[in-house]
Design a protein around this nucleic acid. Structure first.
Length: 486
RNA sequence: GGCGGUAUCGUCUAGGGGACUAGGACACGGCCCUCUCAAGGCUGGAACACGGGUUCGAAUCCCGUUACCGCUACCA
């Protein structure tokens, strides 16, 4: 038989932001579709009008786009399909796989409470299914409101889950659930099945909190005479305390990480490893590589805990690996937002800017780190970090002399190149009696040049700052140290 | 309560009966490199939930217990 093209969908409800858990579900759906030449569709489940907002829908689009998880075909809005969902429900009524229920919500709540009080588990007793046709006819013509309930058949419902293997539910544990509300709108399971059939979904890959919905949905597929898709239930993502990831664990929206300076590729890589492993100890991967390696065999069954530390490490890896010209596009706007430079300046000094990124990216974990570390290279005036000053400029008179010496040695250089600078400064160290401990000059000098005790190598700093600015900064430090004495 | 799912280092995981004195990564400690910080290299401590089976042999298969999670709405 000809294998059909896989069609998968990501179906979030627009009731908040794009959650990292949702992003991971989207990623696995995307990977599977792309790897096997299928389609990845997006369906916005906005049937809960009270909680759905356009803003949330926008956030889902933005998040997916930022991550580079682009979908095929037009976005499907579930709310637009209620008509067809309803028709499907009525078709079941016509075929006798569903029946009208006249019980009111109040009655149901009362019976449920009574059952609970006597410690019995409540299950709809099918009383409306025992009504004779004339009575049903009478109530319908009298305008008595009714819902549609699915008549659960005998037997057991099972499927071969792509991540869990065989899962079976005895039908006796499933009650005759409502598929259509009194107002004619479909209940979740009805809408999902109706839409998945219409969209010709072949693999439903979603969170494992949907496992107990699955037998109901399978029953619905059968009642509608449609072939079953495959199912794959992904484990949940929990916070550091082992509980379901929520707001109190800190950032849970994809956009939060975007604003924290995380690279989309790193986010994706980190998320992929939460519940999936390609084996062979492979960890750092590009999206393209994940797509090559993806396989449902590597999917995990256990919930994973979201560890921000590892995300940061992962981001550092991606930062180091990222080509500077690509990184420049992301860091540039961030530098502008920080008020350090303008797009025009960056374009003007592109080679210099790229060289700076090359120096900073390896020692940064987020793009925010890069911006922070880039500050001394853009500002005209710098301040001195108190701790750095206290530690590296401990003996101020001698430090002043040292810096003046460094200033003169550097100023005397015929050309501003690393070899010359290194030779001159190491010679100065010798003369100062530091022997090969040239760091005793480099460290105070670093503070003079950057105001910080942490920076790229001192010669790189001098080179990036340039002759004029470097000498001026050292001079400022000398003056600063003199003022202190006065 | 009922039903379902899950269970390897603190965390992410490899492992799919003998290759396991259980491997890698994050985090943590030490060492090396070194002008600082990173990065990198080396290295240390750290796990098969428990109890029964099956088997010549179980982290791997089966059963039970425990713990955790999910569902149990005219929410999605």
């Amino acid at each position: 038989m000809a294998a059909s093209v896989p069609r998968l969908r990501f179906a979030p409800s627009p009731t908040g932001y794009l959650h990292v858990g949702g992003a991971r579900t989207a990623l696995f759906n995307w990977l599977y579709a792309r790897k096997f030449g299928g389609q990845f569709l997006l369906r916005i489940e906005d049937t809960d009008k009270a909680r759905s907002t356009d803003e949330s829908t926008r956030a889902i689009f933005d998040g997916l786009q930022w991550l580079g998880l682009l979908w095929d075909e037009d976005v499907v809005y579930q709310g637009a399909n209620v008509g067809r969902n309803r028709e499907d429900a009525y078709a079941m009524l016509a075929h006798g796989t569903a029946y009208r229920c006249f019980c009111t919500q109040a009655e149901l709540a009362e019976r449920r409470a009574a059952a609970e009080a006597s410690k019995e588990s409540f299950k709809y007793d099918r009383r409306c299914d025992r009504l004779d046709s004339s009575e049903i006819e009478r109530r319908v013509t009298a305008g008595v409101p009714s819902t549609l309930r699915f008549r659960v058949p005998e037997g057991t419902t099972s499927w071969d889950d792509l991540v869990h293997g065989e899962i079976a539910f005895p039908n006796k544990d499933i009650e005759d659930f409502i598929i259509l509300r009194g107002d004619g709108t479909p209940i979740y399971n009805m809408a999902v099945v109706s839409d998945d059939i219409f969209m010709q979904i072949t693999l439903v890959m979603r969170g494992d909190d949907h496992i107990s919905n699955t037998p109901k949905q399978i029953l619905l597929y059968r009642a509608l005479g449609s072939p079953l898709p495959q199912f794959a239930h992904l484990p949940m993502i929990h916070g550091l305390d082992g509980k379901k990831l929520s707001k109190r664990h800190g950032a849970t929206a994809v956009s939060d990480y975007q604003h924290l300076g995380i690279l989309p590729g790193a986010m994706l890589n980190f998320l992929a490893l939460l519940g999936w492993s390609p084996g062979h100890d492979i960890e750092v991967m590009s999206l393209a590589r994940m797509r090559e390696l993806f396989d449902t065999d590597g999917l995990q069954r256990k919930a994973a805990i979201f560890d921000p530390k590892k995300l940061e490490w992962m981001n550092g890896q991606h930062l180091s690996l990222a080509p500077v010209d690509e990184l420049a596009l992301i860091v540039g706007p961030a530098l502008e937002r920080a008020g350090l430079t303008s797009a025009a300046e960056l374009a003007d000094r592109e080679a210099w800017y790229h060289a700076l990124l090359e120096l900073l990216k390896v020692r940064a974990r987020t793009t925010d780190d890069i911006v922070r570390q880039a500050e001394p290279f853009f500002r005209d005036e710098i301040g001195y970090d108190a701790e750095a000053e206290a530690k590296q400029w401990k003996d101020r008179p001698s430090t002043r002399g040292l810096l003046a010496g460094a200033r003169d040695a550097l100023a005397a250089l015929p050309s501003w190149d690393v070899e010359g600078m290194e030779g001159a400064l190491r010679a100065l160290a010798e003369r100062s009696g530091f022997g090969d401990k040239a760091g005793r000059i480099f460290q105070p000098l670093r503070v003079a040049l950057t105001g910080l005790s942490v920076s790229p190598g001192i010669f790189d700093v001098l080179a990036m700052l340039g002759r004029e600015r470097s000498l001026a900064r050292i001079q400022s430090a000398v003056v600063h140290l003199s003022d202190e004495q006065a």
